[in-house]
Nucleic acid binder design. Structure first.
Lengths: 332, 332
DNA sequence: CTGAAAGCGCTAACAT
DNA sequence: ATGTTAGCGCTTTCAG
């Protein structure tokens, strides 16, 4: 056991409350005393016991990040960990810690209720992947600082934060239009399952609609191989498109291969653009122009919101959308 | 504030110590009383205050996972988060929580010292990326439960755990030999910087040495593009190798493209194998035979060790190496 | 089998 | 500017 406040106080010849105040930089302690006590603390290697402090203060400086942490999620969803990383950095800056916790979707309502009631943490960041209506009731009933990462897929009055996929789509389209491209093909995933692609398409349509232009969309491209095959077909046309826009890096690889196979030049003969910078749009040949979202920054913002909410619990429920970023590279 | 043990005790007409014991399943409380108290607790929605409990018990059930959490690490090092995920799952199973904490390498010694002294957690898992000799002294001096993830690159008496890259290399080589392949080319990264490839090569050499065979190694292949170029050269030879073994997925993509470009059949004309399952050896066409390491499992093991160490602090320092796994697919 | 009481180390209101 | 003291909610020893 390391030294306690009592030992430090007696060595310094003051009361424990003076020590406490000095260490917490209270205005009511003279600079001289503060200085002296701090030096002695340093000397003795005294550090306040975090557990006692949490107990006395009735808060422990912990924020929980709750999500489904199934095996493989590190590989399948690195974006989430990038958010976690950003959140951690902001929190530790402010003296907080981040607990990462597995919360399965089916038991989430009870789990979250318990987390709140047991005071294990001062606030909660939850991944929308585990969000259900039932969970939203739990969150709504308690006045506990929380934030959902990801737009809920039902009507709600929750606090949430998400990427604006619509803006991303619009940004991509506007960029292409600015560059003078007109005939574009958008390769996306399954029309029913791939909500993100659909939201991107909405954005694209807005931008093209303003110019009274249309986008050719090919849906159901769920793999590298399918995108290669579909691109091959596209390249057989009499008039090939000026640019192919892929909804993710995997599709762009298949696309690239078909283009390479035909010995077409990029971007002179046909251009290519993708969403997401991850995992290899910067590694391909040529490097791909991409729309990316700064997930780290998003984590930072989430953490900032939670800490605000802790300070001002009656802060209104709000939602935010983060702005995507254009990375212009060789492929356009 | 939710209910306290006092309220529950008074409702149940017993003392708080009885409640405490009942809830902690002490042997000295009758089953009947335990039953009754638990029911009442449930009914009132009583849950022990985690902060008070940590304080009284002098432990808080928290393990810290410390690593350099710089921006981008979620994408660059998903393996680490897979370990984190595995650790979290084991810990939460045992009633523990996992704090993820950014610890920059340069200040790690002091940071870790503070973490230990402030009792913020009951144990520490540290990524070898932030390990220095100075940090190893700190760890050696204190009797605090810790574990390093990753083999230290200097002599030490630390507790650490790592993937056995040598076994992985040996396993890959033995598999290829078993399949009858003899002429193999190993594509690896920079000979000075890429320690992991070197360790894999050691394993490969052991396996081939036993058969008195040699492996052709081409080093300095650090990108997708380089591997494509080098493979192109290889395929121009009179006698092409039977199989190309790539040290990672990115190299295998370049390799694949060159092979496809030449219209060679895989694995009939030439086979291909890679290390790591991530991020796309299962998505390529054909799917690639790969050696992978279960990082999730490694996290689980790390967590298990830490909890053991907490129970038995004088457990001897030890190190472990996890066994890699062969994923046989279409490319061999 | 149950209860009384002494902490656990620190914070914060109040008194000086 | 500093000290006194009453908690914070629970665990645990000891007595009954």
């Amino acid at each position: 056991m390391s030294a306690t406040i009592y030992e430090l106080a007696s060595k310094a010849g003051v009361s424990i409350s003076t020590v406490s105040k000095a260490l917490n930089d209270s205005y009511s302690i003279s600079e001289k005393t503060k200085q002296r006590i701090r030096e002695m603390a340093e000397e003795m290697g005294y550090l306040p016991n975090a557990r006692a402090r949490s107990f006395a203060r009735q808060k422990n400086g912990i924020i929980i990040f709750g999500a489904d942490l199934s095996k493989g999620v590190g590989f399948e969803n690195p974006h989430m960990f990038e958010i976690v990383t950003g959140a951690e950095r902001y929190l530790s800056d402010k003296g907080y810690s981040l607990i990462l916790k597995h919360i399965p979707k089916d038991t989430a309502p009870e789990s979250v209720k318990e987390l709140i009631q047991s005071n294990e943490a001062d606030g909660l960041i939850l991944h929308a992947g585990i969000l259900t209506k039932q969970l939203s009731y739990v969150l709504g009933k308690e006045t506990y600082p929380y934030l959902i990462i990801g737009k809920p897929d039902f009507a709600n009055t929750l606090s949430w934060m998400d990427v604006s996929h619509e803006s991303a789509g619009q940004m991509a389209a506007n960029y292409l239009l600015d560059k003078g491209y007109r005939r574009i093909v958008f390769l996306m995933g399954d029309e029913n399952k791939d909500q993100i692609s659909l939201r991107r398409l909405d954005g694209i349509n807005i931008a093209f609609g303003e110019e009274e232009l249309f986008v050719e969309t090919i849906a159901g491209i769920s793999s590298y191989e399918k995108s290669r095959a579909v691109t091959e077909e596209i390249l057989k046309r009499d008039k090939i498109p000026e640019v192919i826009l892929c909804t993710n890096n995997y599709l762009s690889i298949g696309c690239l291969q078909s283009i390479h196979a035909k010995n077409l030049r990029i971007p002179e003969d046909i251009a290519i653009m993708t969403f997401d910078n991850y995992p290899f749009s910067m590694l391909l040949e040529p490097t791909l122009t991409a729309i990316e979202v700064d997930m780290f920054e998003m984590g930072t913002q989430a953490a900032r919101f939670i800490l605000q909410k802790i300070k001002k619990p009656n802060l209104l429920t709000q939602s935010f959308c983060t702005t995507p970023l254009l990375l212009e590279r060789e492929s356009t």
